[in-house]
């Protein structure tokens, strides 16, 4: 599962995102942050039970600094491409 998030470009906010991911019972296979269009785009590939991933996304979406969040089953590279096309 690939989760994509858009936040304002602040490492404080990245820390907030990570603090939630830390407590999810998932394995993070990849996490990338890229500054683009004056926001940070975070993409992470996580593995774990569907419920747990659901919990993680719902928790992340509670952060007011999370401007956008989405998930995709697709391979990460495709996910990035799809998002960029948006």
């Amino acid at each position: 599962m690939s989760i994509s998030i858009r936040i304002p470009p602040s490492m404080d906010y990245v820390g907030r995102v990570v603090s939630i991911v830390r407590r999810a019972k998932v394995f993070v296979r990849r996490m990338e942050i890229e500054a683009r269009d004056s926001t940070y785009h975070i993409v992470m590939d996580v593995e774990g039970p569907a419920d747990e991933i659901g919990w993680l996304i719902a928790k992340l979406d509670k952060l007011p600094e999370v401007l956008e969040i989405g998930r995709t089953q697709a391979a990460p590279a495709i996910a990035v491409a799809v998002r960029e096309g948006r």
Partner: peptide
Amino acid sequence: ILGVATPITKWVYQVRRPEEATPAVRI
């Protein structure tokens, strides 16, 4: 304190420029 308060707050913000102070407190 931002790091400390990160997991126990709904929102945290560190004001780095004076023009952020008023909106930050209001928000």
